[in-house]
Structures are given as C-alpha cells and as structure tokens.
Amino acid sequence: MIINYDSPGQLCNRMWSLVPSIAYGLEYGENVLVINLDKYSGDFEDLNSNKLIRFASHKTIKRILMSLKARGYIQNGKSNIFRKLFNLNFVEGWSNRLGNAGMVEKQSDAIRKIFAFKFDITNPVDQIFANQNEFIIVGVHIRRGDYKEWLNGVYYYTDDEYICILKNIEEQLKLEGKKVRFLLCSNEKIDLYNYKHPDCFIIPNTSGPQDLYALSKCNYIIGPPSSYSQWASFLGKVPVKFIMYSNEKIDLSDFSKIISFNTFENRKSLNID
C-alpha cells in the first residue's frame, strides 16, 4: 500500500503531489491511501469512487508520520522498516509531483473522475457557460497575492499588461471569424471597470474551486505559470499558455494542453523552479 501523508501547500499543489502515486496505483492495481487532502475533501463529489484509491482523515496518524519523518525514520518513497515488515510505502508531497509522468497521462481520465467537483461547485458555472455557446471563452488566471513576492514578483502582472495580451488574443480569434469573451479569475477581487475592453466577465460570488472548474470549461486558458492553471488545463483538457514575461507576444499556436505536471501535449516542458 502507498500512503500519502504530507500536506504541500494549497489545493492544486496537493492534487499534483498525489497524482503520481494515484497513477501508479491505478496502473499496477496497488491500494493508495491519502490522508493529506484535509479541508479540501469537501469540494469533491466522491473521492472514493475508485476502489483502489481511498481518501480519509487520519490526523493523529499524520502527526505521528510527520514526527517520524522529522527524526529521519521515513524518507520519501525509500525502503524502511515499515515497507519491509508491512509493505507500506510512505510518500510525501511536493517533491513527488514530477514522478510517473507516462502513467499520469495514461490514467488521466480515471484521475479526473476521482477529482470531480461536487454539484454545488459545478452547477452555477455550468449555468453560466450554457449561455456562452456563440463565444470562444478564454479563461484568464490573474494570479496576485503571493505572486507579488514570489520570485521577486517576476510573474506579477498589472491590469494594463493583461489587457494588452487579451486584446492581442482577441484580434487573432477575430481574424478567424470567432467571437470571444474573457473569463477573469483571480485570488484577489477583480475590478471589472479596468477590463471594459475587450469583453470580460467573472463568476459571481465565486470561490477558488469554482474558478478552477470554470477555467477547465474554457476553450483556452492564459495566465502566469502556476499549478492552479495547470490543473484546470489537465482537468478540462484545455490548451493553456503561460505568460512568461510582461508584454509577451503570444500566438494561438503557443497554447497546448497539460498532460502531467509541467508537461504539455506538444511535449514541451515548463521549468520555473
């Protein structure tokens, strides 16, 4: 059995840290126990829909395992007395996210089913998108908050910088005879007054999981590099383009779907850490 016990960051970081061991379990029929999704478990319809993958809250066990890790008795995926005696393989979080990329791609549909959001999250978004059929919807992840400090703010863009990029994308889609709207999602409140042109909208009274699902419903996703936008692309099979510097000239051909962490369908990779 594989046991995921660490808690690396927020929702999308945690999901990406789980995906490699979940894919391994699905590939080889091995049981996987997840005890580190914690407060985020309530956002999903049925995390235990697959008999091989189980999610549970074992806070006491988790504290014990973290204590053993701190003392050096268990290390990420390495053989130890628990593995030798009980066939238990303890896997921690973020450092594991890049593993088993081929299996993640192969098992991606089963993984998406496990992490299906609950109806209360999806229904309001689905109702809004039901009235957008005449448009190409470009999801825009305006990442603020911690990005002002992370890597000295290199991926923290102003409203004017986003608008410039959106207008460029709008022009390209219009040349193809398509009507376009931009869905704006952010971890800070968005002032739509600053986005009067091009045509932009938001999900009213939204939340992080709801915006994540909404981005997965778009035709394209654009924003600074993040695990959040990567998950939206992976979840909805949506082409994404990450803005790597301000005033970047972006072409529609630059967009590609995420098939595993930091890996695009066009076989390019994202390397930022």
Rank of each mutant, 00 (worst) to 15 (best):
Ile2Glu: 11
Cys12Lys: 01
Cys12Gly: 08
Arg14Asn: 07
Gly25Asp: 03
Tyr28Met: 11
Glu30Pro: 12
Val32Gln: 13
Leu37Ser: 12
Leu37Val: 06
Asn50Cys: 07
Lys51Cys: 10
Leu52Arg: 03
Phe55Ile: 00
Phe55Gln: 02
Ser57Lys: 15
His58Arg: 02
Lys59Trp: 13
Ile61Lys: 08
Leu65Asp: 06
Tyr73Asn: 06
Asn76Ile: 08
Asn76Glu: 11
Ile81Ala: 08
Leu85Arg: 08
Leu88Gln: 05
Asn89Cys: 10
Ser95Ala: 14
Arg97Trp: 11
Gly102Tyr: 04
Glu105Cys: 10
Glu105Thr: 03
Ile111Tyr: 02
Lys113Ser: 14
Phe115Trp: 02
Ala116Met: 00
Phe119Asn: 13
Asp120Ser: 10
Thr122Asn: 00
Asn123Lys: 09
Pro124Ile: 00
Pro124His: 00
Val125Asp: 00
Asp126Gly: 12
Asn131Val: 04
Gln132Ser: 04
Gln132Pro: 03
Gln132Thr: 05
Asn133Gln: 11
Asn133Lys: 07
Ile136Val: 02
Val138Asn: 01
Val140Asn: 05
Ile142Met: 08
Arg144Glu: 09
Gly145Asn: 15
Asp146Met: 14
Asp146Lys: 10
Tyr147Met: 15
Glu149Phe: 12
Glu149Pro: 09
Asn152His: 13
Gly153His: 12
Gly153Leu: 04
Val154Met: 06
Val154Asn: 02
Asp160Ser: 11
Glu161Ala: 12
Leu166Thr: 01
Leu166His: 07
Lys167Thr: 00
Asn168His: 04
Glu176Val: 02
Gly177Thr: 02
Arg181Phe: 12
Leu183Ile: 01
Asn187Arg: 07
Lys189Val: 12
Asp191Lys: 03
Leu192Phe: 10
Lys196Ser: 09
Lys196Glu: 13
His197Gly: 11
Pro198Thr: 11
Asp199Glu: 13
Asn205Gln: 05
Leu212His: 06
Ser216Tyr: 09
Cys218Lys: 11
Cys218His: 06
Tyr220Asp: 10
Pro225His: 04
Pro225Val: 11
Ser229Leu: 14
Gln230His: 03
Gln230Ile: 05
Ser233His: 14
Ser233Asp: 09
Phe234Met: 09
Lys237His: 05
Pro239Arg: 01
Lys241Phe: 09
Tyr245Lys: 13
Glu248Val: 14
Glu248Asp: 07
Lys249Tyr: 12
Ile250Leu: 09
Phe255Ser: 01
Ser256Asn: 03
Ile259Arg: 02
Asn262Ile: 03
Phe264Tyr: 15
Glu265Asn: 08
Arg267Lys: 08
Arg267Gln: 14
Arg267Leu: 03
Arg267Gly: 04
